[in-house]
């Protein structure tokens, strides 16, 4: 028993150093910009860079749009599958897992061939169209996480009874959807939203190949050209991911303390 505990401590200490040392090193490196002393110059340089602000706000905008449209697509689908088409569940679940199976770079390769400016649906013919295509590609990337968290939240409520109750009180379908189902699966929607946000903010492959000025390609560009800004950006990106996950934990803990449905 004694040796087991020592072994466990060794494993945890090893793992902790593997995780923490790169973070310390990155932070230390980001402070080295001024010769001979530590300073936050690299962060100042990052925040005053107009391209940083533009690409960052572009990615935030994209993340918000992705979340809105993703939720509008996933929640009604998950609801309808549970209510009316339970036989379709394996199919829908398989489709939502496909983005984990097919690498992002392959998916976007297909988009570029299918939706180029000389095709029937020329998404990439204009900047707005490419933005739309990029949003759809982000929706695809986040589909596995969004669907799973919404579906898990829906498992705890009885959609059939809720729907019948609402219908017998004369509610229309939009009322049922937005006043009845959405509030009940809010914890799942929020979990999915935070993961989506974390994914979209850092994504490099898709915006880079679609040539849109997002945060991921900006990071890569800075990495190739600057020395001290990249570690500062890495710390910022880590803080964003950490924030998203913290909110996610908060939401899931909050929903667990809510009264459980019979």
């Amino acid at each position: 028993m004694k040796t087991q505990k020592i072994g466990a401590w060794i494993a945890v200490l090893f793992g902790a150093s593997y995780f923490i040392v790169p973070l310390i090193a990155t932070f230390e490196f980001s402070l080295r910009m001024r010769r001979g002393e530590y300073s936050f110059d690299a962060y100042r340089s990052v925040f005053s860079d107009i391209q940083f602000r533009e690409s960052f706000s572009y990615s935030i905008m994209m993340a918000i749009l992705t979340i809105i449209f993703g939720v509008l697509l996933v929640v009604p689908t998950a609801y309808w599958v549970r209510l009316r088409l339970p036989q379709m569940r394996p199919v829908v679940e398989f489709i939502t897992l496909m983005p984990l199976v097919i690498p992002a770079i392959v998916i976007v390769f297909g988009y570029l061939r299918l939706y180029n400016s000389s095709s029937y649906i020329p998404f990439t013919g204009s900047a707005r169209g490419t933005d739309m295509l990029l949003m759809f590609s982000f929706m695809t990337l986040s589909l596995p996480y969004m669907y799973r968290s919404v579906d898990t939240a829906m498992r705890t409520i009885d959609v059939g009874t809720l729907t019948e109750a609402a219908q017998s009180l004369g509610a229309s379908w939009p009322t049922i959807m937005f006043k009845c189902i959405f509030p009940n699966v809010m914890s799942g929607v929020l979990s999915g939203a935070f993961i989506t946000f974390a994914i979209v903010i850092g994504e490099f492959t898709m915006p880079s190949l679609l040539n849109r000025p997002a945060f991921g390609p900006y990071l890569q560009l800075i990495g190739a050209n600057r020395a001290y800004e990249p570690p500062a950006l890495a710390i910022i990106a880590f803080a964003i991911t950490w924030g998203c996950m913290a909110l996610l934990q908060l939401v899931s803990r909050f929903s667990k303390s809510a009264p459980s449905k019979p």
């Binding site: 990155t26 974390a198 991921g216 990249p230 570690p231 996950m245």
Partner: peptide, 16 residues
């Protein structure tokens, strides 16, 4: 957090 911390920033972290 770390399983979602991939992509470009991770490369920066290991370069540092």
């Amino acid at each position: 957090v770390a399983s979602n911390f991939a992509g470009v920033p991770l490369a920066f972290a290991f370069l540092a």
